[in-house]
Every structure is written in C-alpha cells, then in structure tokens.
Computed example of a mutant assay.
Amino acid sequence: MFALVLLAGLVVGVRALIYDSGLADVEQVEVVGTLTLDPATVLAAAAVERGTPLAAVDTRAVAERVAAIPEVAKVEITRDWIHTVTITVTERVAVALAETPEGLTLVDDTGVPFRPAPEVPPALPRLVFGAVGPDDPVTRAALQVLDALPESVRVETRTIDVAAPTVTSVAPSVLLGLSHDRLVRWGPPDRSVYKAAVLVPLLTQKGTVYDVTSPELPTVRR
C-alpha cells in the first residue's frame, strides 16, 4: 500500500515538473529542410506557442497543419527535450508543368500540382492532357514514363500526352513530344525501362516519329 502511495506521489510530482513548473516549456521551434519554402510560412502553419509545456504539444495536429502547405511533401515533428520542437519538412520537387484553372503550375513526381510556375517557367515537360492529379491513372502513366526516361531524353522532352483507356485499349497510351518536332509513340506505360533503353539508340537515327510501343520491333518514320 505504501509503495502504491509512493508511486502515485512520484507520478504527480513528475507531471507537475513537466507540465506546471515551466522547466520543460517550449522555448524554441526549429524548421529544418526548407529549400525554397520560407521557414516563416512553416512556423505560422505549425502554430506552436512558446511557453506551452513541451509534453503537451500535439505533434500530430502540428504535422497536419504543416502538411497542408502545398509545397510540403512530408513532415516530421519531434520534441527535443527539454525546450525545442523541431519541424523537419521535405519539399515537393517539380518534375513537370501542367495547365490548371490557376494557370501554369508545377507538378511533383506524385502528380500533385502544388505551386504556380514562375514567370519564366523551368525547362520541364508539360503534361498536355486533361486534369492532373495524384489519383488520376492518366497522370500516373505519364509520370511513370517520365521517371523511366534517361536524362539525355528527359531534357529533350517538351510535352507528354496520354490517351485515356478505351473499350479497345485497357491501358493509357503515352505520346512524347521531343525537341525538333519529333514524336515518340510510347504506348502503355508498362515495360517503360525497357522501352527507354530501346529509345536511346533509336534517337540517333534521323526521323520524325519513333515508335517503341512494341520495343522488340521499334520503328522510325522519316
């Protein structure tokens, strides 16, 4: 019985020390991992009040608020005892451009349009089909192909178009627009690594249309 009373008193004492004494209150909120995003934007979204007991900080709620920033791909919130909350963010990286109701927009590798493109857009491929989004199978097909392209082909890629599946075609069909008015008929996004390997030597030949839909029998149309 005495042991239980002693234990209860210890718990109350520890709680008072952590929550009520001010010895373990938040004095600093650090933002780590920002590259283009203003840390002040992250701090404002996190809304962690200094003077709050560190143990009382709802890290899940803070993470949800920071994750709502369009440029944030991932976020981790940690308590660094005894006075610091650290917010580690991973920013979205643009891999393509797309026209949205808000204008030309940067798109990351998961298909999320996350920020208006600058006045002088980066030299990235443009997704020229309909609405772009992470849950859209057409978007996923385009990005799967883009991810498979070697850098030598990626820098030459100007547009990516995708025909949605039809009754006769169960998979999306991808069409790449390259520099110098060249087209690449990619077909479905399956076997993209193999198709990319076939395409590289194929592009050394003069032509206007390069077809790797069937990579075992690629063709070049002049």
Rank of each mutant, 00 (worst) to 15 (best):
D190F: 11
A40N: 13
L4C: 12
A131H: 07
T100G: 02
P150V: 03
D25A: 15
L104P: 04
R126H: 10
P201S: 08
P201I: 11
Q144M: 12
D58Y: 06
P101R: 10
D161F: 11
S192C: 02
L4N: 03
A24M: 12
L7V: 11
P218E: 09
T52A: 07
E71R: 14
I77G: 02
V11D: 03
A3L: 14
V57F: 02
L124V: 09
S214C: 00
S21T: 06
T90I: 13
V138R: 02
L97E: 05
P125V: 00
P113T: 08
V170K: 13
R79F: 00
P134C: 05
T157S: 09
A123N: 12
R115F: 09
S179I: 13
V12W: 09
D181G: 11
V62F: 06
V32L: 13
G130M: 11
L35M: 11
L143I: 03
V85G: 00
E216F: 10
V193I: 14
E119M: 10
H180V: 13
G33K: 08
A96R: 00
A123G: 08
L124S: 07
L127W: 01
T90F: 00
Y210H: 05
T204C: 08
A46V: 04
G187T: 01
D80H: 14
R79W: 03
D136W: 03
P118F: 08
A56L: 13
R15Y: 14
T204V: 12
T213Q: 12
L146T: 08
L106I: 03
V29C: 01
K195E: 01
D109G: 11
A45C: 09
A68K: 05
V32P: 02
V26S: 10
A47Y: 00
R126P: 06
S173Q: 14
P134S: 13
V212H: 01
